[in-house]
């Protein structure tokens, strides 16, 4: 029925509007180069300030001191100092990604599914938008003021409760100190990303599971978490990459006492502390590979997860 009317409309329309169609396609062929002209600044910028500089480093990682192709720089990444810096970076990134995801998920579940007053939800979401941008120097200062040797919590615990955190082995300039600090932007990022996915969990799925005899625990075990799982996994890898590339907070917090990869690279760029420009490039390549893999995992999983939650 609708087919008939469509083709009828097309038939009558063709002769009458042929002139218009022609002139329109004329305009389009004329402007086609203009279209690319509009996109050109963007593409030129991307090539000159995103793609080529990165490739430059990637290529540089395979060029030796004598200017010839070599794998020596990659091999040299195996020195104990660099290996340990990658190891501490990976540990901090993993810990802050896992903790950030866990607590971010719990908070998101609480505000969306906990039947809290609706104002709380919008407050938390707004705060998350701000706090996820708090990474950097000021965040380090804030945590020094809180958990540093003279920080508020440290002092209160010592004077009021007689508990000295620093004597008990805690140090803000350590693995755990940095992890706790990173969670300050990791948790909000998790909340921002996972909230739409939790919204995508339809109320009817709970109800369908309930009529089929499932307890709330069984619903989450067999339905809720499996549906969120790809999103969770993807977001964890995004948070991992986010922490792995971050430097400002760590640098302001610990100076150079905690040798995470970006800080080693920072020192290398400033003063070639590794005494080998090629090795610096190889270090950069290592970072690119790790963050790129984590990001690609995120993107791939997210695209696959989207078809479920349509």
């Amino acid at each position: 029925m609708s087919n008939n009317t469509d083709s009828a409309a097309a038939n009558t329309a063709t002769p009458a509007s042929a002139g218009v169609v022609l002139s329109r396609s004329g305009v389009f062929t004329g402007v086609r180069w203009g279209d690319y002209l509009g996109v050109a600044p963007f593409l030129i910028f991307a090539v000159m300030f995103l793609v080529v500089p990165t490739l430059y480093l990637v290529v540089g990682a395979f060029i030796g001191r004598d200017g010839t192709f070599t794998f020596q720089n990659i091999v040299d990444l195996g020195t104990p100092q660099i290996v340990s810096s990658f190891w501490i970076s990976i540990r901090i990134s993993t810990a802050s990604a896992l903790l950030g995801s866990l607590f971010g998920l719990l908070i998101a579940l609480a505000i969306i599914r906990g039947r809290l007053p609706s104002a709380i939800r919008s407050t938390v979401m707004t705060f998350s938008g701000v706090a996820s941008n708090f990474a950097g120097i000021p965040l380090a200062f804030a945590f020094l003021s809180t958990l540093g040797r003279l920080g508020l919590i440290t002092v209160i615990l010592k004077t009021v409760f007689g508990f000295d955190m620093y004597k008990a082995g805690f140090n803000i300039l350590s693995f755990w100190g940095l992890t706790i600090t990173y969670c300050y932007f990791q948790i909000p990022l998790m909340i921002l990303i996972i909230a739409p996915a939790i919204d995508g969990l339809k109320k009817e799925w709970n109800e369908a599971a309930a009529t089929l005899g499932a307890t709330p625990y069984q619903f989450w075990r067999y339905v809720g978490l499996p549906i969120l799982w790809p999103n969770l996994l993807g977001t964890i890898s995004l948070l991992f990459a986010n922490a792995f590339g971050a430097i400002a907070t760590a640098y302001a917090l610990t100076g150079s006492s905690l040798n995470i990869v970006p800080i080693v690279l920072y020192a290398q760029i400033r003063g070639d502390v590794l005494n080998n420009p090629g090795l610096g490039a190889a270090l950069a390549l290592g970072m690119i590979v790790i963050t790129a893999v984590a990001n690609v995992i995120y993107l791939v999983i997210r695209t696959r997860a989207e078809r479920w939650l349509k």
Partner: peptide, 14 residues
């Protein structure tokens, strides 16, 4: 012990 069918199907997508 009730069976229910919803307007929006509500099949578990996973």
């Amino acid at each position: 012990k009730i069976g229910m069918v919803f307007q929006a199907y509500a099949l578990f997508p996973n």
